[in-house]
Amino acid sequence: MQARLRMISYYLLELISTILVLLFVGILVIKITLLNPNYLKKQIAKTNYYAEVNEDISEEMSYYILQSGLDNSVIEDLHNLDMVKKDIDNYIDNIYAGESYVVDTNVVKNNLEAKINAYLESANVKASNQEELDMFIDQIVTVYKNKIIINDQIPKYVNKIPVINKIVTVGIIGLGIVILILLFVTRVISKKMVIPIPCLATALMIFIGNFSLFKSLELDEFFFWNKHVSELLKEIVFGISSYMNISAVILLIICLICLLIRSIRRLKIVKR
């Protein structure tokens, strides 16, 4: 009777451990991907996002030149890749710190004003309506700002990131401790191997889950907001997926090592 009870407790505790290990891996992957500004920057660099945004800014600025009566030269060299990269990186850092970020558009604005004045002087044209000229400058500056921040609604949704980050960190530590205690208790009760089952079951679930998810998703033609953002989101999803797979492989290795150690010990006993 007691042996049966022990057996049931063993299976039950192993099942709970499996669920907790799965949760642990999932939260850990979220922590090192979505909640990590460096991960986002890495993915941004991978998709050539900075250069694309830099080109996009030039392209969109040129749309306003056509109706402005000004020459294309006034928007040339208003910004560069380093400037765009710095602004995007600062924006990401501030979002993850839960702080509001104002893109410093003074450089663009001052450059533009100087270039417009130079153009008007060289073409011997007088700005008849300063208000229209100021509106044009504001419009160009807004193009730069909007391309950096993508959407001014984003900070409203991400300002809770620092709190979530803290909760997740505490959650990871807590779950880790609970898993260790649970494995120890299971081991004491059952006197059996306790690590391989949660590791192997979790690894299998991750592989199957990843496979079925990517089979159902049509990510090739995925489009959200614009081409660069879509590519970036796709890269983030693929990154998370590969981190999940790496975790599964690590769990599989842990499982095999445990089985190997057990086997070696048994073989030694047999030899003796």
């Binding site: 299976y11 192993e14 099942l15 499996t18 669920i19 799965l22 059996k192 191997m193 391989p196 089952i197 192997l200 079951a201 299998l204 679930m205 199957i208 889950g209 499982c255 089985l259 057990r262 086997s263 048994r266 073989l267 006993i269 047999v270």
Partner: peptide
């Protein structure tokens, strides 16, 4: 094959089977 070795193989097979069962159950 000594009994201990047989027991070991049985134990490993059992671990794999339970893992697979848990995986299916959770899915």
């Amino acid at each position: 094959m000594p009994n201990k070795l047989k027991h070991l193989l049985k134990e490993i097979a059992e671990q794999f089977a339970i893992s697979f069962f848990f995986c299916c159950l959770l899915i």
